[in-house]
Amino acid sequence: MFHTPDTETLRLCSVLTSIAFGLVFALFRFGGRREAYFVHWSASAFLYAAVLIGFDSAPRGQPFAISLLMGALAATNMLIVSGLRAFDGKPPFRLWMLAPVAGCAVVHVLPVLIAGRGPGTGAWTQAVDTVTIAISAGIAGGILLASGRRDRSRARRIAGLAILGYLPGYAIVLVAIFSMTPRINYLALIPMLSDQLLLGVLNLGLLAIPAERAQQRLIDAALRDPLTGAWNRAGFDRQAGRLASAGATVLAIDLDHFKQINDRHGHLAGDTVLIELARLAGAEVASLGGAFGRLGGDEFVAILPASRAPDAQACASQIHEACRKYTEGMPEWTTSIGVSQILAGETGHQAALHRADGALYRAKLTGRNKLTA
């Protein structure tokens, strides 16, 4: 049905694809978006195109020229890693990144240096080249895949799996070499065929990484209260969904005499107090593994995980005490807190929040600045 493609045509397709993606990365970098990681990924794509051209035009019988190309091929993988590190705000380059590059370059000439140019040297050279470049691909793909799992990034996992997708092809090459397959010339087709499937997936995955983060930031912004940075009602409900289980503690938090603060000191001072309350209480809740949100006005809510159930009252007191440490120069303010726990058999946190609101109302009636269960 299909004619077997020749290596030169496939190599040309890979070169053109790499140049195209290299230009896309470069245009993102120099077209108004100043993210440095695009430079790394652009350099990786352009370098890969140059390496493929170099393999096609390198003089035969020059192992040192090929060794440089092998080192450059490994460098394309390390540039992907350095770009990912730059994207994460880390120093892009680390000393260990030189090891795969130097290894691919040095190992290529070892069979010649050890055994000379004998009849079997070519097969051994091709074998060690395949192993070393597979190691560099495995390192890059593994780092992308691991960071994708850690950050719950689908784009990173796609890019990582694309790089790791080259490994079966390298394994086929090794098997063919050591089984003395007579049609050894066809072995060069396997990496090029892999390119046609995986090169676009890899680069599209890299392009999707910043887009995925931008989308997540938009989602977070929609779920955050713009004044205090705490979760809004929708955001808190989403966070509470993962924490709501029997024994989890729900706190209803209210700022005492908030209207008087606004009337005496102005709405700007009132906003400052809300921000300070969210900062202090939110930090305490986060340290306890919980979620903190603003329901509206001066009404806040928190949920602590069930693992804190044995010392729920102490945790609530800790949050209440934190709200007494407001910054000097601000209007004096206090909070009232109602505490409840999710009971066995209850689904969600709404029933516990209703009880916490009742406890908060009792705290207000009995003088405010209190913690009531």
Results as ranks from 00 to 15, higher is better:
residue 88 D to F: 10
residue 88 D to S: 14
residue 90 K to W: 09
residue 90 K to S: 08
residue 91 P to L: 09
residue 92 P to R: 05
residue 94 R to H: 12
residue 94 R to M: 14
residue 95 L to F: 08
residue 98 L to E: 11
residue 99 A to Q: 12
residue 100 P to A: 05
residue 100 P to C: 10
residue 101 V to T: 11
residue 102 A to Q: 10
residue 103 G to Y: 03
residue 103 G to Q: 04
residue 104 C to H: 04
residue 104 C to A: 15
residue 105 A to L: 07
residue 105 A to D: 01
residue 106 V to S: 14
residue 107 V to P: 14
residue 107 V to C: 15
residue 107 V to R: 07
residue 109 V to P: 08
residue 109 V to G: 03
residue 110 L to E: 09
residue 110 L to V: 15
residue 113 L to R: 07
residue 113 L to W: 02
residue 114 I to V: 07
residue 114 I to L: 08
residue 118 G to N: 14
residue 118 G to Y: 04
residue 119 P to F: 05
residue 120 G to D: 13
residue 121 T to A: 10
residue 124 W to S: 15
residue 124 W to C: 13
residue 125 T to I: 14
residue 127 A to F: 07
residue 127 A to G: 12
residue 127 A to C: 02
residue 128 V to W: 05
residue 128 V to S: 13
residue 129 D to K: 15
residue 129 D to H: 15
residue 129 D to A: 15
residue 130 T to N: 09
residue 130 T to A: 04
residue 131 V to W: 11
residue 131 V to N: 06
residue 131 V to Y: 13
residue 131 V to E: 06
residue 133 I to G: 01
residue 133 I to S: 14
residue 135 I to P: 11
residue 136 S to K: 06
residue 136 S to L: 12
residue 137 A to M: 03
residue 137 A to T: 10
residue 138 G to M: 00
residue 139 I to E: 10
residue 140 A to Q: 02
residue 140 A to Y: 01
residue 141 G to Y: 04
residue 142 G to W: 04
residue 143 I to T: 05
residue 144 L to A: 02
residue 145 L to H: 03
residue 146 A to I: 02
residue 146 A to L: 03
residue 146 A to G: 06
residue 146 A to D: 08
residue 148 G to V: 01
residue 149 R to E: 12
residue 150 R to E: 09
residue 152 R to Y: 09
residue 153 S to F: 03
residue 153 S to W: 04
residue 154 R to D: 07
residue 154 R to I: 10
residue 155 A to G: 08
residue 155 A to W: 04
residue 155 A to M: 01
residue 156 R to H: 11
residue 157 R to A: 13
residue 157 R to C: 15
residue 160 G to W: 01
residue 160 G to A: 07
residue 160 G to M: 00
residue 161 L to V: 10
residue 161 L to K: 03
residue 162 A to F: 00
residue 162 A to N: 01
residue 163 I to S: 05
residue 164 L to E: 09
residue 164 L to M: 02
residue 165 G to N: 01
residue 165 G to Q: 01
residue 166 Y to F: 10
residue 167 L to V: 10
residue 168 P to A: 05
residue 168 P to L: 02
residue 169 G to N: 05
residue 169 G to R: 00
residue 170 Y to G: 09
residue 170 Y to L: 12
residue 174 L to V: 05
residue 174 L to M: 12
residue 175 V to M: 15
residue 177 I to R: 08
residue 178 F to A: 08
residue 178 F to P: 11
residue 179 S to Q: 08
residue 180 M to L: 13
residue 180 M to T: 14
residue 180 M to H: 15
residue 180 M to K: 12
residue 181 T to M: 12
residue 183 R to D: 15
residue 183 R to P: 14
residue 186 Y to C: 15
residue 187 L to W: 00
residue 187 L to S: 09
residue 187 L to A: 11
residue 188 A to V: 11
residue 189 L to D: 05
residue 189 L to R: 01
residue 189 L to P: 11
residue 190 I to E: 10
residue 191 P to M: 00
residue 191 P to E: 00
residue 192 M to F: 14
residue 192 M to P: 13
residue 192 M to K: 12
residue 193 L to E: 06
residue 193 L to V: 08
residue 193 L to H: 06
residue 194 S to V: 06
residue 194 S to K: 04
residue 194 S to A: 04
residue 195 D to L: 02
residue 196 Q to A: 11
residue 197 L to G: 01
residue 198 L to A: 00
residue 198 L to G: 10
residue 198 L to K: 01
residue 199 L to H: 07
residue 200 G to K: 02
residue 200 G to P: 09
residue 201 V to K: 00
residue 201 V to H: 03
residue 202 L to F: 03
residue 202 L to W: 03
residue 203 N to S: 11
residue 203 N to D: 11
residue 204 L to M: 05
